[in-house]
Computed example of a mutant assay.
Amino acid sequence: MNEPRKPRVAVVFGGRSSEHGISCVTAGSVLAAIDRDKYDVVPVGIATDGRWVLESDDATRLAISGSTLPEVDASNAMVALLGAAGSTDLVVTGAAEVPRTLGSVDVVFPLLHGPWGEDGTLQGMLEMAGVRYVGSGVLASAVGMDKAFMKIVLEAAGLPVTPGITVTRREWDTDRVSALTRVEELDYPSFAKPARGGSSIGISKIHHQDEIAEAIELALEYDTKVLVEVAAVGAREVECGVLATVDGDPETSRPAEVRIGGGHEFYDFEAKYLADQDTEIDLPADLPPEVEQELRRLAVRAFEALSCEGLARVDFFVLADHTVVINELNTMPGFTPTSMFPQMWAESGVSYPELVDRLITLALERDTGLR
Results as ranks from 00 to 15, higher is better:
residue 155 E to G: 12
residue 277 Q to P: 00
residue 107 V to K: 00
residue 16 R to D: 00
residue 76 N to D: 06
residue 270 E to G: 14
residue 219 A to P: 04
residue 346 A to R: 14
residue 102 L to N: 09
residue 36 R to G: 13
residue 195 A to F: 05
residue 209 Q to E: 12
residue 59 A to N: 04
residue 127 E to T: 00
residue 319 L to M: 13
residue 17 S to A: 14
residue 247 D to V: 06
residue 20 H to M: 03
residue 71 E to G: 06
residue 177 V to R: 14
residue 183 V to Q: 04
residue 35 D to K: 09
residue 206 I to T: 07
residue 129 A to N: 03
residue 319 L to D: 00
residue 314 V to H: 00
residue 254 R to M: 10
residue 298 L to T: 02
residue 109 F to W: 10
residue 149 F to C: 02
residue 178 S to C: 01
residue 282 D to C: 13
residue 317 F to H: 14
residue 222 Y to L: 04
residue 11 V to T: 11
residue 48 T to D: 10
residue 344 M to K: 01
residue 111 L to D: 06
residue 299 A to V: 10
residue 192 A to T: 02
residue 9 V to F: 06
residue 265 E to L: 14
residue 359 L to H: 10
residue 37 D to F: 04
residue 368 T to K: 05
residue 265 E to D: 15
residue 199 S to D: 01
residue 26 T to M: 05
residue 369 G to V: 10
residue 101 T to E: 12
residue 196 R to D: 14
residue 341 F to L: 05
residue 321 D to W: 07
residue 208 H to D: 15
residue 316 F to R: 00
residue 332 M to Y: 02
residue 291 V to L: 02
residue 297 R to I: 01
residue 225 K to E: 07
residue 7 P to N: 13
residue 108 V to M: 01
residue 206 I to Q: 01
residue 25 V to A: 12
residue 181 T to A: 11
residue 3 E to K: 14
residue 250 P to R: 04
residue 39 Y to P: 02
residue 90 L to R: 11
residue 269 F to N: 11
residue 97 E to D: 14
residue 297 R to Y: 04
residue 266 F to Y: 15
residue 103 G to V: 03
residue 49 D to I: 00
residue 216 I to H: 09
residue 87 S to F: 03
residue 117 G to V: 09
residue 43 P to K: 12
residue 9 V to C: 13
residue 206 I to F: 01
residue 351 S to Y: 04
residue 343 Q to F: 02
residue 7 P to D: 09
residue 312 A to M: 07
residue 183 V to G: 09
residue 21 G to C: 05
residue 343 Q to L: 15
residue 69 L to I: 08
residue 252 T to E: 06
residue 6 K to T: 09
residue 266 F to S: 06
residue 333 P to G: 08
residue 183 V to M: 09
residue 246 V to S: 14
residue 91 V to M: 10
residue 267 Y to R: 12
residue 155 E to N: 15
residue 232 A to L: 11
residue 268 D to C: 11
residue 162 T to P: 00
residue 167 V to C: 12
residue 5 R to E: 15
residue 95 A to F: 07
residue 318 V to L: 08
residue 309 E to H: 07
residue 239 E to H: 07
residue 4 P to M: 13
residue 19 E to V: 13
residue 321 D to P: 11
residue 228 V to Q: 08
residue 262 G to R: 08
residue 218 L to Q: 13
residue 142 A to C: 01
residue 309 E to Y: 10
residue 351 S to I: 07
residue 298 L to M: 02
residue 32 A to K: 15
residue 129 A to K: 09
residue 285 A to I: 05
residue 64 I to F: 05
residue 323 T to W: 01
residue 169 R to T: 05
residue 204 S to D: 13
residue 352 Y to E: 08
residue 243 L to N: 10
residue 343 Q to D: 02
residue 53 V to M: 00
residue 173 D to S: 14
residue 92 V to N: 00
residue 60 T to K: 14
residue 59 A to F: 03
residue 8 R to S: 11
residue 254 R to Y: 08
residue 365 E to G: 12
residue 21 G to P: 06
residue 148 A to M: 05
residue 122 L to S: 02
residue 20 H to W: 07
residue 138 V to A: 06
residue 283 L to F: 00
residue 225 K to N: 06
residue 280 E to I: 03
residue 202 G to M: 13
residue 263 G to K: 13
residue 8 R to C: 15
residue 302 A to P: 07
residue 187 D to P: 05
residue 354 E to K: 01
residue 226 V to W: 05
residue 103 G to C: 09
residue 348 S to V: 10
residue 37 D to K: 08
residue 250 P to I: 05
residue 238 V to I: 15
residue 127 E to W: 01
residue 287 L to F: 06
residue 338 T to R: 15
residue 252 T to H: 03
residue 161 V to F: 03
